[in-house]
Structures are given as C-alpha cells and as structure tokens.
Simulated assay, not measured.
Amino acid sequence: MASYKLYSLVLLQLLLVLSAFESGNAHSLKIGFYKRTCPSAETVIKKTTYQYISRAPTLAASLLRMHFHDCFVRGCDGSVLLNSTTNNQAEKAAIPNLSLTGFNVINAAKSAVEKICPGVVSCADILALVARDAVALSQGPVWEVPTGRRDGNVSTALEALTNLPPPFANITQLKLAFAAKGLNVKDLVVLSGGHTIGRSFCAAFTNRLYNFTGRGDTDPTLDPRYAAALRKKCKPNDFTTRVEMDPGSFKTFDEDYYTIVAKRRGLFQSDAALLDDLETKTYVKLQASTHGSTFAKDFAQSMVKMGNIGVLTGKTGEIRKHCALVNL
C-alpha cells in the first residue's frame, strides 16, 4: 500500500511538471494578436475555409482532428503540417495521421494570408483558426481564438505514435494522456464530443466486432444491434470503407454524439470508455438528456485550453513561409 501511494505521488508530480511545461507560454497568446500587423488575417482565413468546406463538408472533421493531433504532439506548433524529408519521417507519416486530409486547406489559407501580410501569420495559428471556422461552418459553436503562436521546426512520426491517444484506449489511459497535456477529465469528455462530425475507417474499430479478446468475440460494451449493423458495412481486414461516427448527422456539429455513447453505440473503444468513469459518464448522461445544454459553451472553452498546449511565442520557433516546410 505504501509503495502504491508513493508511485501515485510521483506520477502526480510528473504530470504537474509536464502540464506546467506544456502550457508555459500560453499567457503570451492573445485575442487579436494580428490586429495591427495583419488586421484582415482572420477574415481571409475564414473565407478560404468556407470555400473548401462549402464544397466538401466532410473536411471539417479532419481539420478539427488535425488541430488536435498538432497540439498533442510538441504542442500547438504546426508540426503536424511538415512534410517528411530524406532523413526524417514527420508526424504526417505516423499511422494515426495517415488518414488526415485537408492539408490543402491550410496551404491555401497560408497562401492567401501571405499575399497580404508576408511573413507575419504562423501556420500554427492558421490551423487553430481553420479548426474553429470548420466547426462553426458545421453549425457548431464559435469562439475567440487567442493567437500569437509561432511554428516549430521539428516533426517526428515516433512522437505522434507515442503522444496521440489511440481509438482503443481505455479510460485510465485517456485520463493520463490528457493530464500530461494539462487537460482535465472534463476536457477529455468535452473534446471527445468532436466525434459528432466525421467518419472513420473500419480498421480503427473492427477488433470490437470480430476479435475483441482474441477469441473471435464482440466487445460486450457495444450495443449488439449496432454491432450487427456495423458488421454489414465492415468486414475483417477492411482498410478502405469509412463509417459515420455520428450516424445521421455526421456533417452537423451537435450534441447527438452523447446520445449515441449513452446508448452504447460509440464507434471506438475510447468512446465507450467514457461510461467507465463517474465524471465522464455523468457528463455524457447530462448532455444526452438535456439536448447538449452546455456542450457548445464547454467545447469552446476546452478548445481554447487545448490551443494553449506547448505553444511557441516571442522569439522561439519561426513563421514558416510554407506550412509544409521549415524555413531555410
């Protein structure tokens, strides 16, 4: 018992140190950072985002996910946008990021901003703003995005693999992963609500349908009727089919995700895991029973908080000329 308490204390102290490190420069961000240096930046970025999402609404989910994946690896520094080189496999090459789409949206927004304010607006800020606009264009909440991030110049696939919570994570693993980034349990359950938009490849969850414990069984936490419906769409070793994460409204940012999870129809193990913790389960039940009474407000707050993770500000980092390449 004493050794367990000591272990818990050491783990807590480690998480607090990591949390302080991840959010250390967050106070340097501010709303309207480009008010004087590039006053029309946010308008131009929003217009560009609209041009793409109006034609392909499913891009919204990927752009939101891209921002999440950026912030959870080295902080919100645009490292997920960098291309691999001859000597380095970048975050883009990591398995969790192979399904990301929408890099062309970020590049287009960067090009549009560079035309009016060259060398001023960072790719990290553009990604944060595009993610916000993508949610808003999907009928979701709108929030003020503090800006002033600078771009990192390091991106490695291994760090993406070790920092991004996988879809098969249990609630303990999820809580630890979020705590390491300075996010609490409420942030975990709120940001999981981002799964209200988008689709997933079958391969991310077919183990729940066909071989959950290695004995050819189905995940008992998954609603049997929903499991049967999913088996009709996803066969074993299916790596090409995509399934809606929020069936019926996967292009609309709403609270329906929580209703689905409450009915044991969350697509991923990480969705189902929200029912394994009292705090997350209570939140799921609250949003499901009140038509998302606080979800929009909560999501906006947690997104701002996530956007503060490990930011580079001041003279650290750089302002990339092209989002996929570090400056020479």
Rank of each mutant, 00 (worst) to 15 (best):
A26N: 04
S79T: 11
L9T: 14
V130G: 01
T147C: 00
L158C: 04
S23C: 04
A94C: 13
M306Q: 05
T221L: 11
T101M: 09
V120T: 15
D187I: 01
H291F: 10
Q301D: 12
R65C: 00
T162P: 01
V185C: 02
A180S: 14
T241Y: 05
L164Y: 06
G216H: 06
A273M: 03
P247S: 11
V10M: 09
R36V: 07
G78A: 06
A273E: 03
D223E: 14
L158P: 02
K47S: 14
G307F: 03
N170I: 05
D298C: 05
D77Q: 10
C234S: 11
R225N: 10
T313V: 12
K305Q: 07
F253V: 00
A288G: 07
K305G: 01
Q13V: 15
T206V: 08
L183T: 04
L191K: 02
L274V: 11
T218S: 05
Q89S: 13
H322M: 08
L15Q: 13
T313D: 06
A56Y: 14
P39Y: 08
Q173G: 15
Q173M: 04
S293L: 15
K232G: 00
S84G: 08
G310I: 03
G317D: 10
L15F: 10
P141L: 09
R150Q: 10
R264V: 02
F239W: 11
G148W: 02
S138W: 00
A109I: 01
A2W: 10
S3W: 10
G317M: 06
C202W: 02
A229Q: 13
L275R: 08
L312M: 13
Y52P: 07
A300N: 09
K110R: 03
D277Q: 05
A94F: 05
A262K: 14
R320A: 02
A296H: 11
L278F: 12
A300W: 06
N207K: 13
D246L: 05
G32Y: 12
T221P: 01
K235M: 02
L14S: 12
N237L: 12
T259V: 13
G214W: 11
P220I: 05
D77S: 13
G102F: 10
L15W: 09
N104G: 15
A204Q: 15
R320Y: 09
A128G: 00
Y226I: 02
R215H: 14
S28F: 07
R242W: 06
T206E: 12
Y258W: 09
E22T: 04
A300R: 05
T162W: 11
A90T: 12
G32E: 12
V121C: 02
A272T: 06
E144D: 15
G24E: 10
I45F: 05
R208I: 04
C76N: 03
A177L: 09
T43K: 14
V145N: 03
R132F: 00
A180K: 15
Q301V: 11
A90R: 01
R74M: 09
G140P: 02
L312W: 06
V145T: 13
L286P: 00
L176C: 03
L59Y: 15
A112G: 03
C38L: 07
Y257D: 09
Q173R: 07
T259P: 00
